[in-house]
Design a protein around this nucleic acid. Structure first.
Length: 670
DNA sequence: GACCATAGCGCG
DNA sequence: AAAGCGCGCTATGGTC
């Protein structure tokens, strides 16, 4: 990373002031605030002159979303060693024209190239500046993200961090005021605190990161690289096929109206209110309530309704489904549509495991229903390509557990969930129904006479071919997937029994449920790994992923057998797996961005173990082939000293989201 | 009018 | 005594 032109005396003074801050538990902060409003070109010259070494940047804006109507920057702030400079842009007291601002911004940008630019949630500011002025600043160090890597469990907002490290008193002013409603002087004073503390936090957080090389490596090589990459990703946004969206909306409104009409005969209530539905079902209609919510109320959740034998249930479920799809993904998107695109925001500090979260709207919870998913596409001349890391969490579990059986599954190129399906079937030899089902498939294949042969054929042909013969196999694999993940991460048989009942209408006995768990651990003896992870968390109070990302679990050390302790111990098993899967995905993303220019390759989103990207039509094949390779072994594995026994595999789908096809099919269709 | 909790449900 | 993990969004119904 670029750390700026070495200006030794300046940095030494910085460090001196940093030591003073630590030594005296916070110098009187007012003395250090030196807020100046930039109103003349002479001020600009002075500011540029002062931009040396570590410089903080910050914006105040009229709203939180750069694509909103009337979105504008109120003030641009630059924090240098002795002064916090505010340049007012959209404010009654601003002395500058748009052309002036552009000129100033370019000078700041030029000067910033030789500085270490520090921001607090810089992705926000840098994106705004790029949207509004097409000037792309670097985020060299982000204090919010640095603290996220230092302590994922706590808050990361600037005021909290300043009070934590510098005992700073609160300086926040009402939102309306900083969005331009207050006099320049007041906004600048507020702004100066942001700039001052962001800059000071750099020194203390850098020191913390330097003290932990593994965390520092994650921060430098992944977190900060992503902060800069996601500026461009968010700027690009996801292309919407408006025609498909209108079609989906029409369909959903019709279906919703039908469902609402059907519900009327059971009662004239608000069917969107769980309370009212509960009263109607369990009081008026006299249905026995099958389960309670967490807080003890009568549950009307889907899993409760499925246990009720009443004709209104089907209508209610349809109503809920359509209502949710409409309000989440059609109406919910409308406020965020800018031109023909959505611009989801990715929070790089959104989870405790290192995964990203997405909001405005959340593009990581879009239903798999093709009616909704295929709304996401690519503009003319470009093609949407989705690449996902296949069965990645199971592969990592095999790797970190050292479980021979699980590793072999992947080394032999088998599908772990499919394997579970067939293992389950074998356990049920003799049960007429399943044998019949298998025999039917075997007959279709017109070669296997018996049960064992049929199973073998199913193993050989794999899940996709089986699903082509009969969709039941797809459903069974889905079930096996849930079972595998559940047991892998510590699920007990009681929950499995409930899960099977609620989701698959499978009514099994306690004994059968227990047997299923025992069978899983016989196939994959993962208990040693579970115990190892628990012991690590108990002793150290944290665990790490293979990439070195730390998950701090203080509750694991309580030693009181509490719920919280149990929770932490299960997290000690899950976190390193989930976390590493995510980091691999991000490594692939960063590498692809390095290898292909933005003129032909534009990632638009990540969904935990997959990457969505727009590719210029003439590059589709090259990108598809390359990302398959990169997903097997990202270059960053070398820097992180990662050598896996388990092979990784990428799966690429080309075309509108949720309806993409493999490269060979796509080529055939061209 | 702003803010909060809960229920329910979408995704990996 | 009980135990998969990780998120964000909408609606309702309540409080300040």
């Amino acid at each position: 990373m670029r750390e700026g032109r070495p200006v030794l005396n300046v940095l030494e003074q910085d460090l001196q002031s940093f030591h003073d801050i630590i030594k005296f538990g916070g110098v009187p902060y007012e003395r250090k605030i030196n807020s100046r409003i930039v109103t003349t070109w002479k001020h600009v010259d002075e500011m540029i002159e002062a931009m040396v070494g570590v410089v903080s940047g910050d914006l105040e804006t009229t709203c939180l979303y750069p694509w909103d109507k009337g979105a504008a920057i109120v003030t641009i702030g630059i924090g240098t060693r002795d002064t916090q400079w505010s340049i007012f842009v959209h404010h009654p007291e601003s002395t500058w024209t748009e052309e002036d601002i552009e000129k100033i911004l370019r000078r700041i940008h030029e000067a910033s190239q030789d500085c270490t630019m520090v921001w607090h949630n810089g992705k926000f500011d840098v994106l705004w500046l790029y949207v509004q002025y097409q000037v792309l600043f670097a985020i060299d160090f982000d204090t919010m993200l640095a603290h996220y890597n230092v302590d994922e469990n706590s808050l990361h907002d600037l005021e909290y961090l300043s009070s934590l490290y510098f005992s700073a008193p609160k300086w926040d002013i009402p939102l309306k005021e900083k969005q331009g409603g207050a006099p320049a002087e007041k906004i600048a004073h507020y702004h100066a605190h942001d700039l001052y503390y962001t800059r000071n936090l750099y020194f203390v957080l850098k020191k913390k990161l330097d003290a932990d090389p593994k965390t520092n490596r994650i921060f430098r090589q992944i977190t900060m690289k992503c902060a800069n990459a996601f500026v461009m990703i968010e700027h690009r946004g996801m292309f919407l096929d408006k025609k498909k969206m209108v079609e989906a909306e029409k369909y959903l409104r019709e279906q919703l109206a039908i469902a609402a009409e059907a519900l009327k005969r059971w009662g004239d209530i608000n069917w969107g209110s769980p309370q009212q539905v509960g009263r109607l079902l369990y009081d008026e209609l006299g249905i026995r309530c099958p389960m309670k919510t967490k807080s003890g109320a009568d549950s009307t959740a889907e899993s409760a309704l499925k246990q009720i034998d009443h004709p209104c249930v089907a209508d209610l479920l349809k109503f809920r489904g359509h209502k949710q799809q409409l309000s989440f993904f059609i109406d919910g998107w409308k406020p965020f549509i800018a031109g023909s695109r959505l611009h989801p925001v990715f929070k790089l500090h959104g989870t405790v495991t290192g995964r990203l979260s997405s909001e405005h709207p959340n593009c990581q919870q879009i239903p798999r229903d093709p009616r909704i998913r295929t709304i996401i596409g690519a503009p003319p001349g470009w093609t949407l390509v989705e690449a996902d890391l296949s069965q990645i969490e199971m592969r990592i579990a095999g790797e970190v557990s050292g479980c021979r059986q699980l590793i072999e599954v992947f080394q032999r190129g088998m599908d772990v969930h499919w394997n579970t399906v067939l293992n389950e079937l074998e356990r049920y030899v003799g049960q007429a129904e399943i044998v019949c089902e298998t025999a039917r498939v075997a007959r279709l294949l017109s070669r296997a006479p018996g049960f064992a042969e049929a199973i073998q054929i199913l193993r050989d042909i794999g899940p996709e071919a089986a699903a082509d013969i009969d969709p039941v196999w797809k459903e069974l694999r889905k079930k096996a997937k849930a079972v595998n993940f559940g047991y892998l991460f510590g699920m007990q048989w009681k929950k499995f029994r409930m899960y099977a009942r609620d989701n698959y209408d499978m009514h099994i006995t306690d004994e059968e449920a227990q047997q299923s768990r025992i069978a899983f651990f016989e196939t994959y003896p993962l208990d040693k790994w579970h115990n190892r992870q628990k012991a690590k968390a108990r002793i150290d109070g944290f665990v790490r992923s293979l990439a070195g990302r730390k998950r701090r679990l203080p509750a694991a050390q309580r030693g009181d057998d509490s719920f919280e302790e149990g929770e932490a111990l299960r997290q000690a098993i899950n976190s390193p797996v989930q976390s590493f899967a995510n980091d691999i995905n991000l490594m692939v993303l960063l590498q692809m961005r390095e290898e292909f220019p933005a003129t032909v390759y534009q990632p638009v989103a990540t969904v935990h173990d997959s990457i969505l990207q727009e590719v210029r039509n003439d590059y589709v094949e090259r990108v598809a082939r390359r990302i398959t390779e990169v997903m097997r072994q990202p270059r960053l594995f070398k820097d992180f000293d990662i050598n896996l026994r388990v092979p990784l595999e990428g799966d690429v789908k080309i075309g509108p989201w949720g309806a993409g096809v493999s490269l060979s099919r796509w080529k055939a269709s061209q």
